[in-house]
Design a protein around this nucleic acid. Structure first.
Length: 977
RNA sequence: GCCCCGGUGGCGGAACUGGCAGACGCGCCCGACUCAAACUCGGGUUCCGCGAGGAGUGUGGGUUCGAGUCCCACCCGGGGCACCA
């Protein structure tokens, strides 16, 4: 290309004709974007198949798979905060490509889901129409940013060919069960196996029939009974159980989509617990692996701990307490060692023990226990009714207040033989553990509060930190971690043959569990907070289930050949919503509105039969659970699996030399922290099922995860509290802020239309160009930190690029001004120092400091009489990841005909990294008093002598004798007097 | 309440394993160019002090020859979890 095809910046001013202005930047940027696309510059080469590199090139270099959390194409459009992560991954990807890696980077669209559907309902257009329009807008905005994506590998989760594979994966999960004993490929125990293998084992009798008495013969069951047994084992199953129902949304939700205060994450509607027949996924079978394998991956500790908390594994013991009058109550406790102190029990209001209670209050019932009721039957019925009527919100609000009532049941503490009362109270949840607890008020705050409220005895069994409470004898020798049997005067507790005195908690737990197991009244066990994933939604805009229901009302898989099951045209795709508070309402699926679609005659292998289609759709998490696999080969339309195993092994297989390490997976996955327990947990679960079934070789889908921060913005409000356009506000921190002559107040937070503080990428392209925008976003601060957007500051990035341009091209003539004379040693040192630093900063994903070093070098070149080629070419190459268009343009003007995208990143020459002299700091009493220019190789003794002779140092020592000298040659000497 | 981050100039932020605090940028000040302004370019810019010098990384203690960095206690800000036995 020549220099003459550049449009000079005119604007009617006397600005130099060839200055790097926004207009010139835009021209350069669009030209290079077109060129990249024409040449396929960023095509990533697969090791096999049709997807080759630029010009049909084969795959070379180490595979590096980099990914963003793909966007949701909302109608609102992008603001400058959205692309931060995309620019960051682009910078990393471009850097790695220049280092010789085979970089796979593309972007798809997560396009099913509630907001798209709501937007469509509002605008009266079909969601497919609005969604595709939104995707087109977003593609345009993102292309204009110059992202080095492989354009052949983009897709949307709503594409029929994508839906086909989403449904296919569902069917794999449906066709699997979890064998906790089976050995899997990575050596651990427990994996998904095919349903056919379960049937075979049941048929030959090597596996007992679950849910039936031991010895039940499989052949003795009817066909329907057999199907029910098998269906109950599937990893995707239908189950009637209490689920989260949001009438205001018109759909049921997963636990992960409900906030702590009992509202829907989307829309903030109240959520009620309602028993409904719904699809679930058996994610609980993977609870241990989902916890343990966090150790294998390079993720932020914060996200790992959020997942650990969500899964909530706790180890302890189940203990059976015999109830008076027959039966028993099993409890779960994490502290079996405190069994001595269990002075009462509490069961959840939903606990089956309460279905039968004594007719009269037993002897010893205190008035406060009975709650004013004449009989336990009356008391328990009243309490259960009240508890059932409580909403999650009320229950949350009452947390801490202890309510409950005595059930009339008495049980025996197996360790002490003491009779203890069984209460029911809503602080015990049916959904956790066994729905019953042994209450140890001496060790548990909640139990203590309950004991105080109901006048129950308190027995301490563990020495608290900071000394012994009154009433304890010398058995308490510990420092807060010893346990003991209760002190002799702690209550009417008979002695036991289990003595824990003096043991540490862990030892005491183990001893108690051994004692319980020996007597067959308890066992060590593990409990999880995680519940199975509620997978069906009563919405239109999602993947239909590839399931039909037969005449026996049992689910039947649609054969793979018949996929995808497309969304039907329905008269009305709006969800059936209800009064948000109407908890008696029931979900109604929009897909049920098309009877012709629902009722079908299909030949599923045994002749044409009548079926009813499942009318649920999948949650929008389904599409994001496997999209990383789709990038590997988005053209795959048929075959036996959603991804070619060879491609998966190449891009994602376990490898020790990549950041993803032994677990394999995507090498770098960048996105917001908001998906810590939703998308990231669900995707790991699906991936592990696919691993068990042999479709993928990586143990984990995402080897390295990075959470980028958010770009936030200032918003301004007038005296009435109404937001005013932030762009028109004047003033600063000192003077205060005004808009249209009136004082306004400033606040800091999100960017949004309602706050009138949105800045769009399009505005940035127009006013500065994409490169300046990219450099600004990357130089604002560390990538994982949230920071405020300040349009005022963008000019700094523009000046940097302008100066870089001027170091190569004359603003007056447009001629390249670079000198081919040799560069000075000083300049070469600056260049190679910068190469070393920038490489390190880029490898550490710190573009902000990398840019600072680039600017420093550029400023150095600016000060030279003429800019040597040997200095500016490395600088241009190093700038390419952050400002690719300008770098390409300069590279081309410097006489290179190929794109620099695949040009090797500069490598520092060690010769120029050593200095002739270094500055040695001389401290007296730790304060800097003098400086010495010394050779780097100076000996400790020479340096000490020089330091002690330095005039400022001598003065500071003030004639005092030297007590000690610390020498860290060649950088530092500290003299102690 | 528990857990995890963070607190450095007027602002965004630098500072590798403890070793010159404030890189780079914004803003501001001074100067050059200009009739003038903008742009651009050069210089300065932690605070106090004319100066020598002194103080300084949320607060208070500690370890160390030496602490933004390590330890203890506390304050403030952000995030996560929260009656999970």
């Amino acid at each position: 290309m020549s220099t003459t095809d550049v449009t000079p910046a005119t604007e009617g001013s006397r600005e130099p004709s060839f200055r790097y202005t926004p207009a010139l930047a835009q021209e350069i940027e669009q030209r290079w974007q077109d060129r990249w696309e024409e040449r396929g510059t960023f095509h990533a080469a697969n090791p096999t198949g049709a997807l080759t590199g630029p010009g049909g090139a084969a795959a070379t270099g180490s595979p590096f798979f980099i990914m963003d959390m793909f966007p949701y194409p909302s109608g609102a459009g992008l603001h400058v905060g959205h692309p931060l992560g995309y620019i960051a991954t682009d910078v990393v990807g471009r850097f790695r490509r220049m280092q010789g890696d085979n970089v796979l980077h593309a972007l798809g669209y997560d396009a099913f889901g509630l907001p798209a559907e709501q937007y469509a309902v509002q605008t009266g257009q079909h969601p497919r129409v609005t969604t595709e329009a939104n995707i087109a807008t977003m593609r345009r905005q993102l292309r204009r940013m110059g992202l080095a994506h492989d354009p052949r590998r983009t897709f949307a989760t709503i594409d029929p060919e994508y839906v086909r594979w989403t449904q296919w994966i569902f069917l794999q999960i449906f066709d699997s069960w979890y064998d906790a004993e089976a050995v899997r490929a990575d050596g651990g125990r427990g994996r998904a196996r095919r349903i056919s293998e379960l049937r075979d084992e049941l048929a030959v009798g090597t596996r007992a029939v679950p849910g039936y008495p031991a010895g039940t013969a499989w052949a003795g069951l009817s066909e329907v009974e057999q199907r029910d047994v098998v269906d109950a084992q599937r990893l995707a199953y239908v189950d009637e159980s209490p689920v989260n129902w949001a009438p205001g949304l018109g759909t049921v939700l997963a636990n992960e989509e409900v906030t702590a205060d009992g509202r829907s994450e989307r829309g903030n509607f109240p959520v009620f617990t309602k028993a409904l027949r719904q699809w679930k996924m058996r994610i609980t079978a993977y609870a241990d692996r989902l916890t343990d394998d966090l150790e294998l991956i390079d993720w932020p500790e914060k996200v790992k701990s959020m997942q650990r908390n969500w899964i909530g594994r706790s180890t302890g013991a189940n203990v059976r307490f015999a109830a008076i009058g027959g039966g028993e109550v099993e409890v779960f406790t994490t502290r079996p060692d405190t069994l001595f102190g269990a002075t009462f029990m509490v069961v959840s209001p939903e606990h089956p023990l309460l279905d039968e209670v004594p007719a009269v209050w037993p002897d010893g019932t205190k008035d406060v226990w009975a709650g004013g009721h004449k009989t336990p039957i009356e008391a328990v019925a009243a309490y259960r009714k009240a508890a059932a009527a409580k909403t999650a919100v009320e229950r949350q609000a009452d947390a801490g207040k202890k309510t409950g009532v005595f059930s009339g049941h008495l049980a025996v503490n197996p360790l002490t033989g003491t009779l203890i009362p069984v209460f029911t109270a809503d602080y015990v949840l049916m959904g956790y553990g066994t729905g019953a607890i042994m209450a140890v008020p001496g060790g548990d705050e909640r139990d203590y509060a309950f004991a105080k409220a109901f006048d129950l005895p308190v027995v301490y069994t563990v020495a608290p930190e900071g000394g012994l409470p009154e009433g304890f004898d010398d058995a308490w020798t510990g420092d807060g971690v010893t346990v003991s049997s209760p002190a002799p005067d702690a209550g009417d507790i008979p002695a036991s043959d289990l003595v824990l005195n003096g043991l540490h908690v862990a030892e005491a737990k183990a001893a108690t569990i051994a004692w319980l197991e020996q007597r067959g009244i308890g066992a060590g066990t593990v409990t999880y907070r995680l519940r199975d994933w509620l997978f069906s939604r009563q919405r239109y805009w999602g993947e239909p289930f590839p399931i039909v229901w037969d005449s026996e009302d049992r689910p039947v898989a649609i054969p793979e050949k018949m996929l995808p099951v497309d969304l039907p045209d329905v008269p009305d795709y709006a969800p059936r919503t209800f009064d948000p508070e109407d908890k008696d309402s029931s979900p109604e699926a929009p897909l049920g509105r098309n009877a012709d679609w629902v009722n079908v005659t299909l030949d599923l292998g045994d002749g044409p039969k009548q079926y009813r289609r499942d009318t649920n759709t999948m949650p929008n998490w389904a599409g994001s659970c496997w999209y990383y696999l789709r990038y590997l080969d988005p053209t795959l339309t048929d075959g036996d699996a959603a991804v070619d195993p060879e491609l998966e092994r190449y891009w994602m297989g376990p490898r020790h030399n990549a950041t993803s390490g032994v677990a394999g997976g995507v090498d770098l996955y960048v996105g917001g922290v908001e998906h810590a327990v939703l998308h990231l947990l669900y995707a790991r679960f699906w991936h592990k099922v696919l691993f068990d079934l042999g479709f993928v070789s990586a143990v984990e889908p995402f080897g390295k995860l990075f959470n980028q921060g958010y770009i936030q913005a200032y918003a301004f409000r007038d005296a009435h509290g109404f937001p005013v356009p932030a762009a028109e506000v004047e003033g600063d921190e000192q003077t205060g802020w005004t808009w249209d002559g009136q004082a306004v107040t400033r606040e800091y937070g999100k960017m949004g239309k309602s706050l009138k503080n949105v800045v769009t990428p399009d505005e940035m392209y127009e006013a500065y160009g994409a490169d300046t925008f990219r450099v600004y976003e990357m130089s604002m601060g560390p990538l994982d930190l949230s920071r405020p957007w300040n349009t005022r500051d963008v000019v700094g990035s523009q000046r940097f690029l302008q100066r870089l341009w001027r170091n190569v091209v004359s603003e007056e003539t447009g001629e390249v001004t670079v000198s081919d004379d040799a560069a000075s040693t000083e300049t070469l040192r600056a260049v190679h120092r910068t190469i070393a630093d920038v490489t390190a900063e880029m490898e550490g994903m710190r573009p902000n400091t990398a840019i600072a070093k680039l600017i420093t070098l550029n400023n150095h070149l600016t000060g030279l009489e003429s800019v040597p080629r040997a200095a500016v070419e490395p600088l241009v190459l190093m700038t390419a990841p952050v400002a690719p268009h300008l770098a390409e343009e300069l590279w081309s003007r410097l006489g290179h005909t190929e794109s620099l995208a695949h040009e090797p990143f500069p490598v520092a020459d060690a010769e120029y990294l050593v200095e002739d002299t270094v500055t040695c700091v001389v401290q007296v009493q730790g304060k800097v008093r003098g400086r010495l220019e010394v050779p780097p190789s100076i000996s400790d003794a020479d340096l000490q002598a020089a330091a002690l002779a330095e005039p400022h140092v001598v003065k500071a020592m003030d004639g005092k004798p030297v007590r000690k000298v610390i020498v860290r040659a060649p950088r530092l000497v500290n003299i102690v007097v």
